[in-house]
Design a protein around this nucleic acid. Structure first.
Length: 260
DNA sequence: AGTTTGACCCGGACGC
DNA sequence: TGCGTCCGGGTCAAAC
């Protein structure tokens, strides 16, 4: 499931491959996942490829293609046009082809003149300069929910999903069920550092490679989750078995001894 | 208004 | 083997 680090890498590689190239006539295999008018894309030039939260944005002249991969969505850049089994849209680009798809059909592709409706509610990017300890502190004070839900709230911090939320809380030694307002100053400082550290580490290591959701990310190295989806395995710090609980309907993994 | 729950979707895991 | 059932996961709408 692609989160900030995976999407950041995807966007960088996609940009270097398709920037300044031209779009051909799109092939819509599954209209369900497409919003807007695909006919607007033909013969348009790709000005840039960027990311906002978990949205992958292809910028054209006064037009955007916005992709959200949700859990299992993918963007491949391949040398053949024929759709593979889960492909939803094929975008020809000067002899290469973006294959966009999702076995679960939850991913989305939107063609839109503006991206405000998609991104205006999004919170700060956790790796940006604007995301400060003070911002984290203030945001925590406003929230009544638990810290796990807080980290995944895209309106506060954009780009963190289930995997990195678990990893960040393990790194900060904070129990995922803790109310936001119960964290003391030291814990908030450590949480802030853990957000930056874990995301930067994952970015450096090429993202988490549990799923092969794109060929635009190197598979040579990868970030290895310490607790996420490791129920019953030994905590890398204290050997206590990792526990899985549900928070907000989401599988949540943590070490009951390290994370108080 | 803030927070929680359900729907969306379907491949894969599991049970009989 | 084969069929049926259930689960997951990010986001948004609906409910609380």
């Amino acid at each position: 499931m692609p989160e900030l680090p995976e999407l950041e890498i995807l966007v960088g590689n996609l940009r270097s491959r398709i920037k300044d190239k031209n779009l051909g006539k799109p092939i819509i295999v599954n209209p369900r996942v497409v919003g807007g008018d695909p006919n607007l894309l033909e013969n348009k030039t790709i000005k840039d490829v960027t990311r906002r939260g978990k949205w992958v944005l292809i910028l054209l002249d006064e037009l955007y293609i916005a992709f959200h991969l949700r859990l299992n969505g993918y963007i491949f850049l391949l040398d053949y046009e024929e759709p593979d089994s889960y492909d939803c849209v094929i975008l020809p680009i000067d002899g290469e082809y973006i294959h966009f798809g999702d076995p679960r059909r939850l991913a989305q592709m939107k063609i839109t003149k503006g991206i405000n409706s998609l991104t205006e509610e999004l919170g700060l990017d956790p790796l940006s300069q604007e995301f400060t300890l003070e911002y984290l502190n203030k945001s925590l004070k406003k929230k009544r929910s638990n810290i796990k839900t807080f980290l995944m709230d895209q309106d506060i911090i954009s780009g963190i999903g289930n995997t990195y939320a678990d990893e960040i809380l393990f790194s900060a030694k904070i129990n995922p069920t803790r109310p936001c307002q119960s964290l003391d100053e030291e814990e908030i400082k450590l949480l802030y550092k853990s957000i930056k550290d874990i995301l930067e580490e994952a970015l450096r290591l090429g993202g988490t490679s549990t799923e092969e959701f794109t060929n635009l990310i190197s598979r040579e190295k990868s970030f290895e989750p310490r607790v996420h989806r490791r129920e019953g395995e030994a905590c890398p710090i204290c050997d206590t078995p990792i526990v899985m609980i549900k928070i907000g309907g989401r599988g949540t993994y943590y070490c009951p001894k390290c994370q108080k």
